[in-house]
Amino acid sequence: MQVSFSVTSDAIASGFHALSEPLRIRILELLRSSELCVCELSEELGIAQSKLSFHLKTLKEANLVRSRQEGRWIYYSLNLSQFVALEQYLSEYRRFSQLLPARPCEDTPSS
């Protein structure tokens, strides 16, 4: 049984944009093992919470992380379903596109 995901091109672009920043990749790596609060992420990454908040907002807008509030702290975790959607999007290229060798560029005639 194959699960089908409907992901818009905007969601795909947003996901890959969020993944294009090394600090956001580091945040996601930390969240792979457990849910963490902003203070724990800030301490682990050695960056100010204000800078971290900007990156967490980008990840949240891309639907790559989820947040929940407990008392005065906000806890973040991975939204695995969005990673599955991005993975499925990429797998379509591998599955249905034949990999061909690159065609040599033709020299353009000079005037």
Rank of each mutant, 00 (worst) to 15 (best):
S4N: 11
F5I: 15
F5K: 15
F5G: 08
F5D: 07
F5C: 14
V7I: 11
T8N: 14
S9L: 14
S9H: 12
S9R: 15
D10Y: 05
D10N: 12
D10F: 10
A11L: 06
A11E: 13
A13G: 04
A13C: 11
S14M: 09
S14I: 03
G15K: 00
G15A: 07
G15E: 07
F16M: 05
F16D: 02
F16T: 01
H17K: 10
H17V: 09
H17P: 05
H17M: 10
A18L: 03
A18H: 03
L19H: 00
L19P: 00
S20I: 01
S20R: 01
E21Y: 03
P22Q: 01
R24S: 02
R24V: 00
R24W: 00
I25W: 04
I25E: 05
I25D: 06
I25C: 03
R26L: 12
R26I: 07
R26V: 04
R26N: 06
I27M: 05
I27Q: 03
L28R: 04
E29R: 12
L30A: 10
L30R: 10
L30M: 15
L31S: 07
L31M: 04
R32G: 12
R32P: 01
R32Q: 07
R32V: 07
S33W: 06
S33N: 15
S33D: 10
S34N: 13
S34I: 12
S34P: 01
E35H: 03
E35T: 14
E35S: 13
E35N: 04
L36T: 02
L36C: 13
C37W: 05
C37V: 08
C37Q: 10
V38H: 09
V38K: 14
V38M: 14
V38Y: 01
V38C: 09
C39F: 08
C39A: 13
E40Q: 12
E40R: 08
L41M: 10
L41W: 03
L41Y: 04
S42E: 11
E43Q: 14
E44N: 15
